[in-house]
Simulated assay, not measured.
Amino acid sequence: MEDELVAHLPTDVRAALRFFAYYLGNGTLDVDLLDGIDYRAHLLEYGSDLEMVFAIFANVLEVDELGETVNDGDAQYRAAQWIRRRCDPGYQVEPPFEAWETELHGP
């Protein structure tokens, strides 16, 4: 273990994830787009939707060479668009999601 490197997510990325989870759980994720939609019960009822919301946020989130996030607001908005579409089938996501935004990574 002497040469083993342990890396952690940059502090800014951890903060972005924490705030995203807070707004999501608090029901205040992008209040303009999701105004009047209580999406929390829906996300908990269908776990795959919650999985996709976090995947979209993480896939869209960009980090610069210093490990600082550069677009956490955009990442939150794209996740909010997914939620809105799942709760409001008449809502049109603009621009439409690209495959890389909704890709699920991992085992």
Rank of each mutant, 00 (worst) to 15 (best):
L24F: 07
L24D: 04
G25A: 11
N26G: 14
N26Q: 11
N26I: 01
N26S: 15
N26T: 08
L29I: 06
L29G: 10
V31G: 12
L33Q: 12
G36N: 12
G36S: 11
G36V: 08
I37M: 11
A41W: 13
H42E: 05
L44K: 12
L44D: 09
L44A: 09
Y46P: 09
G47M: 11
G47S: 09
S48W: 08
S48G: 10
D49A: 01
E51K: 15
M52W: 01
V53Y: 03
F54P: 04
A55M: 07
F57N: 02
F57W: 03
F57A: 06
A58T: 15
A58Y: 13
N59L: 08
V60W: 05
V60P: 09
V60A: 03
V60C: 02
L61Y: 07
L61H: 13
L61S: 05
E62D: 14
E62G: 09
E65G: 15
L66P: 00
G67S: 07
T69A: 02
T69M: 13
T69E: 06
N71L: 04
N71K: 11
D72V: 11
D72N: 10
D74H: 11
D74C: 06
A75Q: 07
Q76G: 11
Q76A: 10
Q76R: 09
Y77M: 05
R78H: 12
R78Q: 03
R78S: 03
A79K: 00
A80V: 00
Q81G: 10
W82I: 01
I83Q: 07
R84H: 14
R84F: 00
R84Q: 03
R84Y: 04
R85H: 09
R86T: 01
D88L: 08
P89E: 01
Y91Q: 02
Q92W: 00
V93A: 00
E94H: 08
P96Q: 02
E98K: 14
E98T: 14
E98Q: 14
